[in-house]
């Protein structure tokens, strides 16, 4: 978190997917995949985005890279409002913003060689390289820990971890400023996950990259992020720097999430104080009113069903959207409630 000006700034961003029915595609509702979220990403940092399946993480990733257009709100990248920019004007910006996808198997074209895949961005963007594209590609391959001689091989000749490296190499080709990684390791084996996590960290240092890492695995997110945002049903419920989020989680949902992660220590299981949530995540088609977590929250009061808690600063760099946060020393619950009510 170096400069004051964020590299990426998202304000009240929304994405509602219309749900249509019948012959005439009458709109009968909307999936509120992302429903008014705001966050900043500063140069050189890693923002982690966690949450359970369907909470809108991938949609957020696709919105900020403008693979999708937001229904409302603002996305500002390097001072430019890109919320509704046309594809033509976005093209040069795409060099600076790249996305890494989850599935290293389907995201690489099986008929193209590694050289063609990694070199494609140069051709698409019409970039000239000093010693030719081939040399540039081989340099990148080396950077991500692949052998430059792999240039003429095809994706199917590689293992999952190596394919993910190819995917990463492709995003690095144009020296982007911001990389959005959507579940970059969740399709990989544990031992391979660690290789890719380390690689992402090394590249960040070496190339001064900024990351938004999307994952459902809290331990991976903690390892890799400087700040973490927790999402629930299209909303950000808590954002904080890594240390305070994991040591003093304030939102009941964050607490429940952390408590649910199985600990690889047979002794711990016996004496762990667990929070167990009832039921599943409600449908984003019909999210509960006010605080969306109130159907599963053990602290829920009447006010939680009526008044939506805003994302409020509870401690230095720690924002929470809850009327009755845990571990929040400065602000007594009643006061928070009164403030918003």
């Amino acid at each position: 978190m170096s400069e004051n000006e964020p590299l990426l700034s998202v304000q009240n961003m929304e994405k509602h997917f219309p749900v249509t029915k019948g012959l005439f595609k009458r709109q009968v509702g909307a999936v509120k995949a992302v429903d008014g979220i705001s966050f900043d990403v500063f140069k050189g940092e890693t923002l982690g985005l966690v949450g359970e399946s369907g909470c809108g993480k991938s949609t957020t990733g696709r919105l900020v890279t403008r693979l999708l257009e937001p229904t409302a709100g603002k996305i500002v990248f390097e001072g430019q409002d890109i919320s509704h920019m046309g594809q033509g004007r976005l093209r040069p910006l795409r060099r600076d913003m790249q996305m890494i996808f989850q599935d290293p198997y389907s995201s690489l074209n099986p008929r193209h060689t590694v050289g063609a895949i990694v070199g494609a961005p140069y051709r698409i963007q019409g970039v000239k390289t000093e010693n030719g594209v081939k040399k540039a590609v081989q340099d990148i391959l080396e950077l991500v820990g692949l052998n430059p001689e792999h240039y003429n091989r095809y994706p199917h000749e590689f293992s999952g971890g190596q394919r993910q490296r190819i995917g990463i190499a492709r995003t690095l080709a144009l020296k982007p400023k911001l990389i959005i990684a959507d579940e970059p390791v969740s399709a990989l084996d544990v031992s391979i996950q660690a290789q890719v996590v380390n690689l992402l960290e090394d590249l960040q240092k070496e190339l001064d990259l900024t990351y938004v890492v999307i994952a459902h695995d809290l331990s991976v997110v903690r390892h890799i992020s400087d700040r973490v945002a927790v999402m629930y049903l299209g909303k950000i419920v808590e954002v904080a720097d890594r240390k305070s989020l994991y040591s003093v989680p304030m939102h009941p949902y964050t607490n429940a999430l952390m408590s649910a992660v199985p600990v690889p220590d047979p002794k711990v299981r016996k004496d762990r104080d667990r929070i167990r949530l009832k039921g599943d995540v409600p449908s984003p088609l019909n999210p509960p009113p006010a605080c969306r977590f109130h159907t599963r929250c053990w602290k829920a009061q009447d006010i939680c069903k009526k008044v939506e808690p805003p994302l409020a600063q509870m401690a230095e760099g720690h924002q929470v959207a809850c009327h009755f946060p845990e571990n929040a020393p400065e602000l007594p619950a009643a006061e928070t409630a009164a403030k918003t009510g």
Binding site: V190, S191, Q193, A194, V220
Partner: peptide, 11 residues
């Protein structure tokens, strides 16, 4: 050992 070392832990 490798498996244990590969795994980020919350605890």
């Amino acid at each position: 050992w490798g498996l244990l070392g590969s795994m980020p832990r919350l605890d």
